[in-house]
Write a protein that binds this DNA or RNA. Structure first.
Lengths: 106, 106
DNA sequence: TTAGACTTGTCAATTTTCGACAAATTTAAT
DNA sequence: ATTAAATTTGTCGAAAATTGACAAGTCTAA
């Protein structure tokens, strides 16, 4: 089962047996805020992804994919978006890509 | 082909043969800002959906679906999210729904 | 060339998000 | 039970993003 990004960080942290305070220090933030992030009460700031990847020796691209899908999932969840509507959104995204492409060539 | 929300508003407006100034007045905003909205340079404020529905006699639920899918499309587009990743995001959204459900029953 | 429709740039005001600190609460070991 | 460390929660001001408003610009059609 997929997890939230916060739960994922907690998992990584526990695997390395780090405390909130220890990991927070490595990430240049407060342990209180990291706690909120792990518990889904705040968002992880995208700017810190490279640092996070480095700490846990993760591929940055893959980590960013974890992050992006989590953010999208949150958006889908919060807007009560059904599978059907998600399909429509996907088509609209394709349309935006097309728009951008035709704009480039002009 | 699906359109952006801004293009959709422009379509509605032209169908009723309203000017930017006229529609903007009905929506309680500046014609300059409405122009930006139609051209995708600003977001339409969700708070105005009921007003928009009323002006064009649209079903609010359906209009909101148009809006939500547009916002998601923008998110998908801006994060360069592939179909594959979107699938992951959908699963994560399902997980969030499940989390919330189990939280409710406690 | 003038009027009306639309677009673009800018800035202050509002709103939202974020980092930090203090004060709880929880957990684990003695 | 008592203590210490780990975690959580509440609140605050600062930083960032969004929005509304105004001014000045372009474009189009008489």
């Amino acid at each position: 089962m997929k997890t939230t990004f916060g739960e994922y960080i907690r998992l990584l942290r526990h695997n390395k047996e780090l405390t909130l305070t220890q990991l927070a220090a490595k990430l240049n933030l407060d342990s209180a805020n990291l706690s909120k992030i792990e518990n889904g009460k705040r968002d992880f700031d995208e700017k810190r992804l490279p640092k996070l990847a480095k700490i846990f020796k993760l591929n940055l691209i893959e980590l960013r994919n974890e992050y992006v899908t989590d953010q999208l999932a949150k958006h889908i969840y919060e807007t009560n978006c059904t599978k059907q509507l998600l399909q429509v959104a996907e088509e609209k995204a394709a349309y935006r890509r097309k728009l951008n492409k035709s704009f480039q060539t002009k």
